[in-house]
């Protein structure tokens, strides 16, 4: 966590906030690395999944990016957001009723056939309105551009952008809340 790393992140985020989509992708990827380092340490005791924290923190960074002050360091800001999300997740975990092993058996049996484990975000995604879900899915999992998504779903590009924006905001709001 050197000053150079912070300066690098700050410069990417500055470009991103000025509208540079590519810089924003780079910023989020680098931020994810930094956050993952913290999340692994915090979750070493088990109970909460580190990658859930990373994803939830990235969503929060996205919807709260206006709370970064252009002249302030980025890493303490990222750290505070990630920490907030971790504390949230731990509280949530504590509130959840513990599940007996028999209820797990089915999941355990099918877990091996699943390639990727579905994180909490999957649940939040399922809660979206179908239109928003289709747009978020196309752009994230299938890697479509806005234009391709518009064509495929027979929508105009503005509608795709709005659905994406609202869908992500809704996921950020309901992340892990069940």
């Amino acid at each position: 966590m050197s000053g150079a790393e912070d300066e690098h992140l700050a410069s990417l985020l500055r470009q991103a906030l000025a509208g540079d989509e590519k810089a924003y992708g780079d910023f989020l990827r680098d931020a994810a690395l930094v956050i993952r380092g913290w999340a692994r340490r915090w979750t070493a005791g088990g109970g909460v999944d580190a990658e859930d924290i990373v994803q939830e923190a990235l969503l929060a960074v996205h919807v709260k990016r206006h709370t970064w002050r252009g002249d302030a360091p980025v890493i303490p800001w990222l750290h505070a957001i990630a920490r907030h999300k971790f504390v949230d997740a731990v509280r949530r975990q504590a509130r959840r009723p513990t599940v007996g092993i028999e209820e797990y058996e089915e999941t355990l049996a099918s877990a091996e056939s699943e390639k990727a484990r579905d994180w909490e975000i999957g649940r939040a995604l399922e809660g979206l309105a179908p239109g928003q879900r289709a747009v978020v899915n196309a752009i994230s999992i299938e890697g479509c551009t806005i234009a391709e998504t518009a064509q495929r779903l027979d929508m105009n590009e503005t509608a795709v952008r709005v659905a994406l924006h609202r869908g992500l905001a809704a996921i950020a709001r309901r992340f892990g809340r069940n």
């Binding site: 992708g25 990235l58 969503l59 709260k64 975000i121 994230s140 952008r161 924006h165 992500l168």
Partner: peptide
């Protein structure tokens, strides 16, 4: 959804960020 997919969606959401706190 894995984290890289999520990042793709976040980066594509180029609508203006929220109003500045000031």
């Amino acid at each position: 959804m894995d984290t890289n997919d999520l990042i793709k969606a976040l980066a594509a959401d180029t609508r203006r960020p929220g109003l500045s706190m000031n």
